Simulated assay, not measured.
Amino acid sequence: MSERSEDSPSGVDSITEKITEKLHHHDSSSSSSSDSDNEKSSPSAVKSSPSAVKSSIYRLFGRQKPVHKVLGGGTPANIFLWRNKKISAGVLGGATILWVLFELIEYHLLTLICHCLIFTLGILFLWSNASTLINKSPPRIPEVRIPQDIVRDTAINLGYDINQGLAALREIASGRDLRKFLAVIAGLWVLSIVGSWCNFLTLFYIVFVLLHTVPVLYEKYEDQVDSFAEKAMAEFKKQWAVFDAKVLSKIPRGPLKAKKVV
């Protein structure tokens, strides 16, 4: 009896020691996990996200969207960026054929349309009569229609772009940004000189070819072009500051007349 009474305190002590060890182990594990969480959540341990890195990179014209989104993100953007090489090559080849016909061969639009219709109708008429002579069913001429959705979407997009251009011209003419005004004037002057060198069709074809070449090349060499543009923009700002200090700041401006209060 006495031995049991002596052994019982030691058994209780061993149980309490095990409980305290478990509690201590749980506290240490929880503290280590909290430390690791704090380390993960600390600003020094967190790496900069790719979006933050991309936002710090200089982009041409202050662009923040990809080139595909800047061009509209639809079928025209896919054609200009050669997402489908067959379609893009077909569109560019068709534009080249039209330019050769109208500019080099000096075809007229009405003459070309009439000749195409004469050729198409003649082929279909002869094919239908030849099939009846050899006891075959005449060919089924497909019904060609332009979908209304395409026409409506094209008109909406064209109207939106025209309104955006008119709004931009109104903003430039308001006189709030002298730098933008001078840039637009210089661009229009260069465009007028280029227009005097060639007619509208050739100019339109040149712009069409540039739309099929410049965006895809820029998308391929985006980082190199943006790096060069950043250096060029810094040099332009430096020269503009000198021009502003020596020329624009010395232009006399009359005092603003105060409005009469009725």
Score class of each variant (00 low, 15 high):
70 V>P: 01
4 R>M: 03
34 S>L: 07
72 G>I: 10
176 R>C: 13
100 V>C: 06
233 M>T: 14
62 G>M: 09
64 Q>Y: 03
81 L>D: 05
195 G>T: 06
58 Y>M: 10
215 P>A: 07
243 F>A: 11
216 V>N: 01
167 A>H: 02
147 P>W: 00
80 F>H: 02
38 N>S: 09
18 K>Q: 14
148 Q>F: 06
95 A>M: 02
35 D>G: 13
169 L>D: 13
10 S>Y: 15
190 V>R: 08
68 H>L: 06
69 K>V: 14
185 I>P: 01
143 E>Y: 00
245 A>S: 00
194 V>F: 12
223 D>W: 04
49 S>N: 09
29 S>D: 10
65 K>Y: 11
163 N>E: 08
80 F>K: 01
73 G>P: 00
172 I>H: 00
139 P>Q: 01
186 A>K: 10
24 H>M: 13
261 V>I: 12
222 E>W: 03
209 V>Q: 02
54 K>H: 14
148 Q>T: 12
23 L>Y: 08
84 N>R: 05
184 V>A: 11
241 A>E: 13
20 T>V: 12
170 R>Y: 11
248 L>Y: 00
44 S>N: 06
226 D>W: 01
67 V>W: 00
12 V>N: 04
140 R>Q: 10
217 L>M: 08
256 L>H: 11
212 H>T: 11
148 Q>A: 13
110 L>G: 07
137 S>H: 07
104 L>C: 03
61 F>G: 09
256 L>A: 15
92 L>S: 01
89 A>Q: 11
166 L>M: 12
78 N>C: 13
175 G>K: 00
148 Q>Y: 05
132 T>H: 02
121 L>I: 10
229 A>P: 03
108 H>E: 15
167 A>E: 12
262 V>A: 11
107 Y>I: 14
262 V>S: 11
222 E>M: 09
180 K>W: 07
202 T>F: 04
193 I>P: 02
165 G>K: 08
86 K>Q: 11
208 F>C: 10
26 H>F: 06
250 K>W: 05
219 E>A: 05
248 L>E: 14
206 I>A: 06
93 G>Y: 01
40 K>D: 12
60 L>H: 09
136 K>V: 07
208 F>I: 12
73 G>I: 03
13 D>G: 02
84 N>M: 09
132 T>E: 12
147 P>I: 02
93 G>A: 04
67 V>Q: 02
147 P>F: 00
203 L>W: 05
159 G>W: 05
234 A>L: 08
120 T>N: 01
203 L>Y: 06
219 E>G: 01
